Structure formats: C-alpha cells, structure tokens
Simulated scan of single mutants.
Amino acid sequence: MDFSTEFTEHEGWLSVVSSGHLDSAETYASHFEEIVRRLTASGGRRVLMDNRQVEVDIDACDASQVARDLVEQGVPALGIRYAVLCAEPVAGSCRFLETTFRNNSLRFHIFPTEAQAIEWLTA
C-alpha cells in the first residue's frame, strides 16, 4: 500500500491528511520534511496531522532515527506544534512516536478528537 498526503492551509495552521502504510524511516522522514518545508514557506508553526487512515509499522529504531534527523535539521528550534490524530488500532504506535519525539524536544501531541487538537493548536 502506498502512502499519500493531502495538505490544506487554514488560517493559522496547516492540515495534513495522510493515508496508507507507513513502513520505513525514510517514508516518515520525507513526510516530516515536506510538512516542515510547507510550514517554513508559509511562515506557519502549527500543523494538524490526521493519521487516522495510516497503518503505522515502524520500529523503535526507525522512530528514533527520524527524531534525531529532525533535531539535526534544527526542527525543534522552529517551534512547530504537531497535533496528531491516530486510529485506535495504531494508538499504541502513535503514543510511542509521541514519546520519542517529545523526548527529542519536538512539540508532538496525540489527541483523541479533531476538536481537541484544533483547540490546542489555536490556543
């Protein structure tokens, strides 16, 4: 299964709706690089990542590598806020990613509802 992403700009934040199979550090890193590129171009610092249609299948080593790569690229210094929605079957994988990214100074939070995520983004 492929991995696809749709971007929509809102006032004050970017919506990123993804679907497919996330099965490698390279795919996840490319995903984040595109988000950072779009945010940097628009001057934005807030993103809602809707991953409810994503099958997450990356291991701890891959997640840690993506987080380290983002740190090396200076992403934490940009102050980007990532609000993330995940499907219940992959919630454990998403929670692991949340912990890994937050341990690397990224503002990455999982939310159970879109309304809660948007409220946090726009606060």
Rank of each mutant, 00 (worst) to 15 (best):
D59M: 04
L14K: 00
A29V: 09
S18L: 04
E11M: 07
H31E: 05
T8Q: 14
L39N: 02
G43K: 06
E6A: 13
S64Q: 12
S19Q: 13
A77W: 01
A41D: 15
Y28F: 15
Q73C: 11
W13L: 06
R37C: 09
L22C: 04
E26A: 06
V66Y: 09
D50T: 00
R52K: 09
A41Q: 14
E11D: 14
G20Y: 06
E9Y: 07
T5G: 06
M49Y: 07
A41H: 09
H10V: 01
F7M: 01
N51D: 10
S18D: 08
S15Q: 14
V47C: 09
T5M: 12
R81T: 12
D59F: 01
S4E: 13
L48K: 07
L22H: 06
A29P: 00
E33T: 13
L39A: 08
D62R: 04
G74Q: 08
S42C: 01
V56I: 15
A25R: 05
H10S: 09
R46K: 15
A29S: 15
V75E: 02
E11I: 08
F7R: 03
S15H: 12
E34D: 14
A60Y: 12
V66E: 00
V36P: 04
R68W: 03
E9H: 11
T40V: 14
R37M: 10
F32Q: 12
R46Q: 11
S15K: 11
T27F: 01
A25E: 08
D57M: 07
T5C: 11
L22Y: 04
G74Y: 04
L78F: 10
R38H: 07
S64N: 14
S30G: 15
S24H: 02
A41Y: 03
A60S: 14
E11Y: 09
T40Y: 10
D69A: 04
Q53S: 13
L14E: 02
V54D: 00
I80L: 03
S30F: 05
S15Y: 10
A83Q: 04
Q53F: 08
W13E: 03
L22A: 02
I58Q: 00
R81N: 03
G74C: 06
T27N: 09
S4T: 13
I80W: 03
D59N: 13
A41W: 03
W13T: 08
H10F: 05
L70R: 10
V75T: 11
S4C: 09
S24T: 00
F3R: 06
V47W: 00
R37L: 11
A63E: 08
V54R: 02
L48T: 06
V66I: 07
R46E: 07
D50K: 00
S30R: 14
V17H: 10
D23A: 10
Q73D: 15
Y28E: 13
L14Q: 01
G74A: 06
A60T: 15
R37V: 05
S42M: 10
Y82F: 15
M49V: 10
Q65C: 09
S4K: 12
R52C: 05
D50C: 00
E72V: 11
F32S: 11
V71N: 05
V54L: 06
I80M: 02
V56C: 08
L14I: 05
G74I: 05
L22T: 05
I35Q: 11
S30V: 02
R45F: 03
V36F: 06
F3P: 00
Q73H: 13
N51W: 06
T40G: 11
A60G: 14
I58D: 01
L14M: 01
T27L: 13
E55C: 05
R81M: 08
V75Q: 00
D50V: 00
S15P: 02
